[in-house]
Computed example of a mutant assay.
Amino acid sequence: MTPADLSRTVLHAVRRAVAENALHALVPARVRVERTRPGGSGDYACAVALQLAGDAGLPALEVARILRERVAAEPGIGRVEITGPGFLSFTLDAPGDSDRAVLDAVRERGSAYGHGDALREEVLRFHHAREVRAAVTGDAVRRLVLSQGARVRISCDEAGQAGEAEWGLLGVTVDAYGTPPVTSPADPSAPLIPVRPVPAGATARELLERLGPDATRWGLLRPASHDRAPLGDELLVQGEANPLFLVRYAYARTRALTRGAAALGFTSASDAAPAPYEAASDAAPAPHEAESDEASYESPARPLLDLLADHPRVLLAAARHRAPDRVARQLEAVAHAFFDFHDSCPPLPSGDEKPSAAHRSRLALAEAAGTVLAGGLSLLGIRAPAHI
């Protein structure tokens, strides 16, 4: 369980307590959890009970007890204690259990892993100029905030100009044309939000003819909106120096591993109940490390597992900040970590080697990485080819 997961878990406990009339208080927009300070108890601490006590008309210790009942049984949480005047202190499950929960969540949610409802109360109205980078950025922002539960409407300055067909080829849709009012009469709480990246300096037609839709979208979205978008032929290079190629090649490699495993007659650990689960410790530690659980978690799998666990937080932050470039950078990091893991811990047996529990666990991690890569590319409006 990541800190973002823990924050959402506590927030859901607050909502349940309010819905069940155990608490009479306004539900906060978010709950802050922090690493426990030296000498403290547990892995993380949270002061939400003190925050809610005044509104609820209850002592903070009583609010903490109400919330502890609703958090303690959640997956990934080993123990919940009440400390001081009403702090909640959380001890998370052992890393192996947490890693398994992450891979199980990826498998269960598929390409929707990391989607949530944190923005479900928000109605967002975006508006952009009739310019290709603004249009593609607005479309990607729409996808991101929708993935977090928001309701969205996008408008563009004007219609009827050349390039409408090209925008369609880029996957861009617009709900309305013309400049709408700054505030909506139907919903005054939904102000108009401008989407204003640095312009591309080229038309949609020019970019499509030279780069195609996927490279065009990646080139427009990977840089932060306030930076110029490099749109040269480097976006078409078939090599690891091209981040788009790296990300898509990593995904294609995960699909090839699944096909290869099927040809050898075995599946991942997540398919093979009750196969042993070794996702975080399958890197074959050196003999002097074999008895150390702590050492095994410093395997080449660790960076990839941590990135997968952090993916929901990255998507939510990208949605909140209207920053699709954060998703692109996350996918690049996952791709690099996948190849490091793949090269150190091959998911497929070689030569006369028989498939083992370690191979099944490695394959489960590789497949989870592929799922995250495909889901992230989809949010950017880019295809994830199974073959490259």
Rank of each mutant, 00 (worst) to 15 (best):
T2L: 07
P3Y: 10
R8K: 08
L11I: 06
L11F: 03
A13S: 13
A17L: 04
V18R: 06
L23Q: 03
H24I: 05
H24P: 01
A25Y: 06
A25E: 05
E34V: 08
E34R: 12
T36A: 12
R37A: 14
P38V: 00
Y44Q: 01
Y44M: 04
C46N: 08
V48K: 04
L52P: 07
A53E: 08
D55Y: 01
G57N: 04
A60D: 07
I66H: 05
A73M: 04
G76R: 06
I77S: 04
G78D: 14
R79H: 11
V80Q: 04
E81C: 02
G84Y: 05
S89L: 14
S89R: 15
L103Y: 04
L103A: 10
L103Q: 03
A105Q: 02
A105K: 02
A105L: 02
E108G: 02
E108R: 14
E108M: 04
E108K: 09
G110D: 12
G114S: 11
D117P: 05
E121M: 06
E122Y: 01
V123D: 00
H128T: 12
H128S: 15
V132H: 15
D139P: 03
G160T: 14
G163K: 01
W167I: 00
G168L: 09
L169T: 08
G171I: 03
P181N: 13
P181E: 12
V182S: 12
P185A: 15
S189G: 08
A190R: 03
P191G: 09
L192C: 04
I193S: 03
V198F: 11
R205H: 14
E209F: 09
P213W: 10
D214V: 12
A215G: 11
G219P: 06
P223D: 12
S225C: 12
S225P: 11
P230R: 04
P230L: 09
L231E: 07
G232W: 09
P243L: 08
L246P: 00
V247N: 04
T254I: 10
R259L: 14
G260S: 09
A263Q: 13
T267Y: 00
S268I: 01
S268A: 09
A272F: 07
P276D: 11
E278V: 08
A279L: 01
S281D: 01
A284S: 13
E289I: 02
E294G: 03
E294A: 14
P300E: 03
P300Q: 10
A301Q: 04
R302H: 07
L307I: 02
D310L: 05
D310G: 11
R322C: 02
D325P: 00
V327K: 02
R329P: 01
Q330L: 05
V334Q: 03
A335H: 00
A337M: 00
F338Y: 11
F339L: 15
F339H: 11
F341D: 02
D343N: 14
C345W: 01
P349W: 08
S350C: 13
E353V: 15
E353D: 15
A364P: 09
A366N: 08
A369E: 08
V372L: 08
L373S: 09
G375W: 06
G375Q: 06
G376F: 02
S378P: 00
L380Y: 10
P385F: 15
I388D: 13
